[in-house]
């Protein structure tokens, strides 16, 4: 009878938890569904192949799209990852593996400061560091601003992913006569791989959605750059910033395109997380 009651309580608990999960998921689905419904109409061939141009194009029904925005987002986000991943992982390794290093308090302070800094200030920082000296808004400046967003997230997740690896694994490597850095690179990092990838993806998802730091760094652009170097050295369009400017524009056609930009942004983040999940389950299978 006791057993029966326990069984019943178990079922009740499961029910409550499922209901709570559903409650969290429902608003998420509503948001996604709403964005899709509003924007799906603008997702045509032109959307993926044409540049935006002036508002007149959309109003007159001429060809217009966001190809320059989608490409620009990829360039800026990837460049930001390129900058933030090595630095962030390096900082995480320093914090976790060399806790007694004398530069570590400074590193931790920097990282915590960056972590607590509002995104728009990071844009300002990149503005001061890159845009001012270069004399122009640029995709590169945008990437630096986003790297500032990613950096502390990657550093922190790396640190905690490395910290949960038992100390004995490091000792096992050292006892084989491997130098400390070798142990970290060849045994600790592969063991923590899944945690590192997850951290990078969280950082990516966070940064990919940020419009504020891009407003005065990559700035935005209605056209494709005329030369390939324009992706890095000239103003570049990105999805969150474009979404924002489409949304505040007075043109109804642009509003719809803004929703469509939202769909693309959402899918980008979702795809990133699916990849991350796959890597995660891959790691789990390997551990078993």
């Amino acid at each position: 009878m006791n057993l029966k009651r326990r069984h019943w309580r178990d079922r009740l608990m499961l029910g409550v938890l499922s209901a709570a999960t559903l409650l969290v998921l429902i608003p998420l689905f509503i948001v996604i569904a709403y964005v899709v419904v509003q924007g799906i109409g603008a997702l045509n061939g032109d959307f993926f192949t044409k540049e935006l141009g002036s508002p007149a194009r959309a109003q007159m029904g001429q060809e217009t799209g966001l190809v320059h925005t989608i490409l620009g987002t990829m360039v800026v986000d990837l460049l930001a990852l390129l900058l933030a991943v090595p630095l962030g992982i390096g900082a995480g390794i320093m914090l976790s593996e060399y806790p007694d290093h004398r530069l570590n308090p400074l590193l931790r302070l920097l990282n915590d400061t960056l972590n607590g800094m509002p995104a728009i200030l990071k844009g300002l920082l990149a503005f001061a560091l890159i845009v001012k000296p270069m004399g122009t808004f640029s995709g590169f400046a945008g990437a630096v601003a986003l790297a500032f967003v990613m950096l502390p997230i990657i550093a922190r997740t790396t640190e905690s992913a490395l910290m949960i690896i038992p100390w004995s694994i490091r000792e096992a490597g050292l006892a084989l006569g491997l130098p400390r850095w070798r142990v970290v690179l060849s045994t600790i990092i592969p063991t923590a791989r899944v945690g590192l990838i997850t951290g990078i993806l969280i950082a990516f998802a966070r940064a990919a959605g940020e419009a504020a730091p891009l407003l005065f760094t990559s700035f935005g652009n209605n056209y494709l750059p005329s030369h390939w170097s324009g992706w890095l050295l000239g103003p570049v369009d990105t999805l969150p910033q474009r979404l924002y400017s489409l949304a505040i524009s007075p043109y109804k056609q642009w509003h719809e395109m803004g929703w469509a930009a939202g769909i693309i942004l959402l899918s980008m983040v979702i795809v990133a997380f699916v990849i991350g999940r796959l890597a995660w389950s891959g790691g789990r299978v390997a551990k078993r």
């Binding site: 004995s168 694994i169 096992a172 050292l174 006892a175 084989l176 006569g177 491997l178």
Partner: peptide, 21 residues
């Protein structure tokens, strides 16, 4: 110490394989 540990190996009290290798 790295050279010393290469010459003087060690097997620990608890098994310590590199789990993902």
């Amino acid at each position: 110490p790295v050279i010393i540990r290469r010459r003087v190996g060690m097997v620990f009290q608890k098994p310590t394989p590199f789990p993902t290798m």
